[in-house]
Nucleic acid binder design. Structure first.
Lengths: 185, 185
DNA sequence: ATTCTATGTTCGTCATAATGAACATCGTTC
DNA sequence: GAACGATGTTCATTATGACGAACATAGAAT
């Protein structure tokens, strides 16, 4: 089933595009010449906006009108530590789990990230089409784009678009994770 | 300049799609569950409809949402008897005027139409992508799609999309015209 | 000519979208 | 901790889109 009401479509779309631009609800409202309350209600699925309202939003977000009616593609992939396609026999002393294959025409840089709780590391958007793959080694961390962060425990894998603001936030001391940045070349 | 307000875009689009379907304003209104007055105001460029209203219209017209925001391409070509690109010297005893060239992949059937005043001949839509070329030989006739009829005198040429309801109406006795139907094959 | 049915328009009323102030929360700074 | 700024939410009020009846007009049928 794919029958969403226009309300829901728009609610998702506005939130998606807004967070993609890294704009706050208040900021978007004032730039678009709308009341905060109006936006708030729209993003929560309530309301039935007029086209002038939508037009102002689309222009301010610098997207085409129809973008506001497109369904949000997840663009993320989450594989928990106990999930995934395992390679190797059940009795073997080692196991490998395929987390993501490598598309041709992409380059991958590997980082190790050491995090301590309390400080949320916010990363500015990378070039369009960039993805990040994150695997937690030690501890627990909240990772991902602003609009779709995930709580990851040791062994969990998360892939998300990195061409928008995203965060790394450790929940335990000594948290370590591996981050692979995937860029098109 | 291509900066139309959403109002105008929608006004044009609704009228275009409605007449393309051959629906009356009242009929569309009742099918879409809207008041006639609402549609009337929208089509006259006044008003600032809500998305629920637009959604109902789009669904009833069986078009995608974004269709209602597309600009209306004219799709018609009108060359009066004294216009057009003439071939041959000015002193020659004959002149030819190129009215339309023949795109590859199209087939053209030629008809002669004899009309008398008083009876409006309404033609039902032909397959999508069909065009008609009409040249009046004798008399005067009103020809074209419902939303864009043209008064043609002898020698006038008119090309219009025929995948929607269109009419031939003679204004003088003994009116004759040549109609070429262009279909994709 | 007269009625009847369809067309699209205009208007007063009502429902509701948009507003702005007040509110609640959270981080940051002093 | 207190004060501050920015976040997004909730509410009353106001502006306005949607409605439906009445209207004007045109064609067709009687």
């Amino acid at each position: 089933m794919d029958s969403m009401t226009p309300n829901d479509l728009i609610a998702n779309a506005i939130q998606r595009e807004r967070s993609r631009k890294g704009l706050s609800l208040s900021a978007l409202a004032s730039r678009a010449g709308l009341a905060k309350s109006t936006l708030s209600q729209l993003e929560s699925g309530k309301g039935n906006p007029s086209i002038e309202t939508l037009w102002a939003i689309a222009e301010t977000l610098d997207v085409t009108f129809s973008t506001l009616f497109e369904v949000s593609k997840p663009d993320v992939s989450l594989i928990r530590a106990d999930e995934g396609a395992r390679l190797g026999s059940d009795h073997a002393t080692f196991q490998t789990t395929l987390l993501a294959n490598c598309p041709t025409g992409t380059r991958r840089d590997v980082y190790r990230v050491d995090l301590e709780p309390g400080s949320t590391r916010k990363s500015t958007p990378h070039p369009a089409g960039t993805f990040e793959h994150a695997v937690v080694c030690v501890g627990q961390a909240r990772v991902g784009p602003l609009e779709a962060t995930e709580m990851l425990n040791a062994g969990d894998y998360y892939r998300y678009p990195a061409d928008r603001p995203h965060v790394y936030e450790a929940m335990e001391p000594g948290t370590q994770l591996i981050v692979v940045m995937e860029t098109r070349d």
